[in-house]
Every structure is written in structure tokens, then in C-alpha cells.
Amino acid sequence: MTPRRQRMVLVALVAAGVILSAGLALRAFQENLLYFFTPSQVMAGEAPDNRAYHLGGMVLPDSIQRDPGSLTVNFIVTDYAHSMPVSYSGVLPDLFGEDQGVVARGRPDANGLFVADEILAKHDENYMPPEIAEALAQAEQGETP
């Protein structure tokens, strides 16, 4: 084997070893790499029960209830399979709204109400002008009256 061949094999072996160990490491830390848990995962007991975590999903339409006279707001987070009620008191991000992605940090109380101390908005990868979004919404309404 020429020295160049040897170096080639070495680089290939190092690359293969790194890819393998990175894959194994990422699998092992799979849970720690999850930024949030969906309501389904929480129901299945996958979320940690000894510390605060992030709950993520969509804000169920018509579920937002603002408490008049305070900053408290109640709403339901859903992943369309399971849902969880959330209570939060504080300033909401601009993009917070019904049928929008949301991430809440906190933990559930004894009654299953998720008490959040921070709310973040999660948006999707779609970008479009307002007119097109309106047209899309109208088309959707036309299909399912």
C-alpha cells in the first residue's frame, strides 16, 4: 500500500468512526435533544416529572380565555391527538394566537393544568404575502363550510 493509499484509508476510517459514534451519541442523548414534548408524549409519560420542561403544540382555536383585569391567560395546547390545558400569567409574544404554534415552559399541577412561566411562539416554514394567506383561508372555508 502506498503512503497516499494509507492516508486515504486513514481518513475514511476516521470519518466512518466519527459518523458511527456521532450517530450512537445522538441516539443515546435523543431525549435531551428534544426541545419540547407534545401533549401525546406527556400523556405517555415521556416528559420528566421532576423538573420543568417545554410543552409544544398548536393553540386550539377558540380555547384562549383571558382573565379580565390581570395578565392571566388560559388556553389549550393540542397536537391533534391529545390536548393539555395551559395557564400563564405574563406578556405574550406577538405571534401568539389561535391555531398557531406555541411552546410553554413549566410543569403540570396536581389537576393536570400545565402552569407555564414562559410562553414562546413557534412559526412554521411557510412564507407568503397577506393576500395569499387570506385567499388560502377563504378557499379552505369554501371547501369545508
Binding site: 481518513v11 476516521v14 470519518a15 466519527v18 435533544l33 419540547f36 411552546v103 413557534k122 412559526h123
Partner: peptide, 28 residues
């Protein structure tokens, strides 16, 4: 060797938003 080893991070960055739940949105 460090440069070659680190390249494994590039596909991880790209697919991170699909493999795990993230605040960052998916690829556009």
C-alpha cells in the same frame, strides 16, 4: 483531521429540525 471529523456536524445541523422537536422551524 479535525476539519474532516467536524464535517459530520453539517448534516446534523440540517436535519436537526426534523429529527428532534425544536423551536426553530423546518427547512424552507
Amino acid at each position: 483531521l479535525l476539519a474532516v471529523v467536524g464535517v459530520v456536524n453539517v448534516p446534523i445541523i440540517h436535519y436537526s429540525v426534523e429529527w428532534w422537536t425544536t423551536l426553530h422551524q423546518g427547512p424552507t
